[in-house]
């Protein structure tokens, strides 16, 4: 296998792009779901209502103590059991990613919310806003702005982490590349190509993060 033949990439391009589409779809849905649940968790932790804060803290610490692969296995096993019908691997994996990422997002969002000066909250409350109005109209918009670079960095990590769906054989970009690699006996070319594609997207992502950081730095 000493002669490299990169034409195998061109030949299988549509198949690989389909896999890449799956990778992006999973990333985007997991970000959306993770952000939604992560925000709720962060609000719960900062709500000042002890039982709620404790539950949210326990959730976050618990998920952060587990390897993602184990979480993927858990949900691959649990989701059909709970739903009582077979769901494609995609949904099991998506649930796993959303619940797992929510723990990480909640920490970022909590830090972001805490960074909004307390005077703002006091001012909003003085205007007669309730907790949810204060959060929704005053704190969160500012917090999200401040958090954007960190959230994006986490999104890049998530993009990389989606490759772990490999363990349940969901056809994302890496699995597609591996299928071609095994079928055509082109491991060197395919894995190098896969690495290069991830590298390019992640570098673009971190470039965007740096630009944002410069813009938000005031």
């Amino acid at each position: 296998m000493s002669d490299f033949d990169f034409s195998v990439i061109l030949d299988n391009l549509p198949f690989l792009i389909e896999g890449l589409g799956m990778t992006f779809l999973l990333t985007l849905l997991a970000i959306a779901g993770g952000l939604a649940i992560g925000t709720l968790l962060a609000l719960a932790r900062l709500s000042g209502f002890a039982p709620l804060a404790m539950v949210a803290a326990a959730y976050t610490n618990f998920f952060r103590s587990l390897p993602l692969i184990l979480v993927i296995f858990w949900f691959y096993f649990l989701v059909p059991l709970i739903l009582g019908r077979p769901v494609g691997g995609f949904y099991s994996v998506l649930v796993a990613f959303i619940l797992f990422e929510a723990a990480y997002y909640s920490e970022i969002i909590r830090a972001g919310i805490s960074s909004v000066r307390s005077g703002q909250v006091a001012a909003a409350r003085a205007l007669g806003m309730n907790y949810w109005q204060t959060m929704g109209d005053v704190v969160l918009p500012q917090a999200f702005r401040a958090m954007t670079p960190v959230l994006l960095t986490q999104a890049i990590i998530l993009f990389q982490d989606t490759s772990l769906v490999y363990v349940v054989g969901l056809k994302d970009f890496l699995v597609s590349a591996e299928l071609v690699a095994n079928r055509d006996q082109r491991l060197v070319e395919m894995f190098t190509f896969a690495a290069a594609v991830y590298l390019v997207f992640c570098l673009l992502g971190s470039y965007a993060v740096r630009r944002l950081q410069q813009r938000f730095a005031t």
């Binding site: 490759s163 690495a195 991830y198 590298l199």
Partner: peptide
């Protein structure tokens, strides 16, 4: 090293 998924790096070391 930070911008290539760890799993891909495993495969690079093992297969490539």
């Amino acid at each position: 090293f930070r911008n290539v998924p760890l799993l891909v790096q495993f495969f690079l070391w093992f297969f490539v």
